[in-house]
Design a protein around this nucleic acid. Structure first.
Lengths: 197, 197
DNA sequence: TTTATTTAATTAACGCTGTTAATATATTGA
DNA sequence: TCAATATATTAACAGCGTTAATTAAATAAA
């Protein structure tokens, strides 16, 4: 990688870092080209030398946040034994991360996309994120005959969709009204979905 | 109701009608104060004589769309016998409505809200919508001992959250990529959640 | 019916937004 | 050091939601 590429990547990094800080702090509503550039220490137009548009820049943060979330989930669940219990722990940590940083949830699931064709890989990354985090333990359940392959596949999806749905309603619709209620319902849902009959 | 109130309600109706048309047609992205006012046949500033702000106006459409959706669901499911089968039919029709009019899904679940305290009733209405549509049949299942009260409550929520999550990913994240895949997964999820053990 | 007063609708304006063109400033190669 | 290139900045545009000032319409009083 030549000097030019190094410098270019560094510049991109400054803008990405600024964007991540705003998303984690004030959330998506505070994102604007001028706000990002201010924080990065450049003029707003400079941004366009390194990113096609602001949405492109915003979606660059997905991978970084996923890595951060993955690290968090691993550290929160390392003591839990493999299998169903581990899947439950992962699910709870996953939810906990988005509750702690609602801006990342907005980025992953709510932010509109301009060029859908161009972002398909990122969109796939988002939809399958929980699956990637918990895949090992689903496999473990199948291997230990706790459940069959077909059931595992459907339940993995149910868990994913349910958590996303609950997070959407809680973060974007304030339903339920208290975190306590939300937390209890998360517990109920996870237990019910992973109940082995 | 005096003349003044009648006229005021009529004016509000013109703007609401225009907003509904745009939402059903082009979706949330095409909503703007000037666009709504144009369609209603008034200047953009006139809108503020009848609504506090544009979000207030937008959320006025929720009740109307829910009524329309309810009518659709009833007509699509009238031949299905009460109980689990009916709940499945209702769930499918519910999803079908939002797929047909993605703008209504955006309004119900994605549109940001200014004054959350002031909109709590509407937000509750949205979160509990599927429950209201299917409540009779859950009761029926409990009465006919197909399931107990606690299971019914949790499953009702699982179904609600799962459908919202799937719709979010499909409408806002294009996952899965084809309607066929989406449709099959909806079928799988509904059957799995409502499976009686 | 004409005039004065109140009500409602419109235009102009403000401060935002994302993006692009034109300009100014560094940086590089000769 | 000077010319050429690359990069950063300012100015500008068209759009947004909202409000203040202004015009037009409807009502009440004379």
């Amino acid at each position: 990688m030549g000097n030019k590429e190094i410098q270019e990547q560094r510049m991109r990094g400054y803008f990405i870092q600024a964007t991540k800080e705003i998303l984690k702090g004030e959330g998506l509503k505070s994102i604007s080209v001028r706000n990002i550039a201010d924080r990065a220490g450049y003029s707003y137009a400079t941004l366009y030398n390194y990113f096609k548009d602001v949405r492109d820049l915003i979606f660059e943060c997905v991978v970084d946040f996923q890595e951060e979330c993955e690290t968090f989930v691993i550290s929160e669940t390392e003591k839990t034994p493999a299998g169903i219990e581990k899947i439950k722990s992962i699910a709870k940590a996953y939810v906990k991360y988005f509750i702690q940083y609602p801006g990342t949830f907005e980025l992953f699931f709510l932010e509109k996309i301009n060029d859908v064709a161009n972002k398909q890989p990122t969109l796939k990354l988002i939809s399958n994120f929980l699956d990637r985090l918990s895949n090992n333990d689903w496999e473990y359940c199948i291997d230990t005959k706790v459940m069959n392959k077909e059931d595992a596949k459907v339940k993995m999806n149910t868990l994913n969709f349910t958590l996303v749905g609950m997070l959407l309603l809680y973060i974007n619709r304030r339903q339920p009204e208290t975190y306590k209620e939300f937390s209890e319902e998360i517990e109920n849902q996870i237990n019910s979905i992973l109940e082995v009959k």
